[in-house]
């Protein structure tokens, strides 16, 4: 074998083996289970059961609605935040502090953070107490167990991914583009929409894809903040694997979630590419 090839191959072997053992193999197990029945005969029965039922479509709709809204809100909050961090903060140390503040919550468990939101959003939580004390509402708002509650928790958990992806794109932007745009008489607004935004679009798209895929498959945050009153696909999957033990049906639900997500991600990637080319 070519000596030049041997080293990269040797280096690839470990991650490749890891990928096969811990990603492809389990995925294959799930797919095989979804395509068979309890007697181990091949069948598409599970998929018919999932897709021919209005109920599942409603759950898919709720799941994707929450994921899309999470992505949208993260984008609307994340872009200005990334802008602030990369463009407006002049003092280096403060920028570091801001980035640390952004990243540190990711070091604590998702469960702990979701419990934190349960305390804040609850009937007697900080938010309701403040609104009640301020006389803005007469009785506590119901936030836990609603899509709004799940959305708040998800945006909090996933916002850092968006900010880091966009911030990275913004910081790599060549300042001369903006100077040229201004030189040619474009007002700052036009420069932003015609120069900066298209150039940072790959960062925006990758941030959106990351947030979307994490949101659509999230279990802990929706499970805790929904209080079991709203179902998302991941919760139905967990139920099948944890208490019903129907791995065939649970597998089919997982594969459906995976395919829908891949379609959405492929779609988003396409937008990024065509806009990037133009």
């Amino acid at each position: 074998m070519n000596r030049g090839l041997r080293m990269p191959l040797a280096m690839l072997a470990a991650p490749l083996a890891f990928f096969v053992a811990f990603f492809l193999a389990p995925l294959a197990v799930v797919i095989l289970a979804s395509l068979s029945d309890t007697a181990n005969a091949w069948t598409l029965e599970q998929y018919v059961r999932v897709l021919a039922d209005r109920y599942h479509w409603e759950v898919i709709l709720v799941t994707f609605r929450i994921a899309c809204l999470t992505t949208l809100v993260s984008l609307l909050l994340g872009y200005p935040l990334a802008w602030y961090l990369t463009r407006m903060v002049r003092w280096r140390a403060w920028r570091r502090v801001c980035v640390i503040l952004l990243v540190v919550p990711m070091f604590t468990s998702n469960i702990v953070r979701s419990f934190g939101w349960m305390v804040l959003l609850g009937r007697k939580g900080l938010l309701n107490q403040t609104l009640l004390d301020g006389g803005l509402i007469d009785r506590p708002l119901r936030l836990l167990g609603t899509e709004t509650g799940i959305l708040i928790g998800m945006v909090y958990v996933l916002l850092p991914f968006m900010v880091l992806a966009i911030g990275n794109a913004l910081s790599r932007l060549d300042a001369s583009h903006e100077l040229a745009s201004a030189d040619l008489g474009a007002p700052p607004r036009a420069t932003f929409f015609h120069v900066i935004l298209p150039l940072t679009l790959p960062g925006v798209i990758s941030g959106c894809i990351m947030v979307f895929t994490l949101a659509v498959s999230a279990y802990v945050t929706p499970a805790l903040l929904s209080g079991g009153r709203i179902s998302v696909l991941s919760m139905l999957i967990f139920q099948q694997y944890s208490s019903v033990f129907d791995f065939h049906y649970g597998g089919a639900l997982s594969v459906v979630l995976l395919i829908f997500t891949l379609v959405m991600v492929g779609f988003a990637g396409r937008i990024g590419r065509t806009r990037g080319d133009a």
Binding site: M118, L144, G145
Partner: peptide, 20 residues
């Protein structure tokens, strides 16, 4: 009109603890 349906015993303890 429930506050929540819990998956884990810990979540139930948490709901009682917070007054939820």
């Amino acid at each position: 009109d429930t506050s929540s349906y819990y998956d884990s015993s810990g979540a139930a303890s948490n709901a009682f603890q917070s007054g939820e």
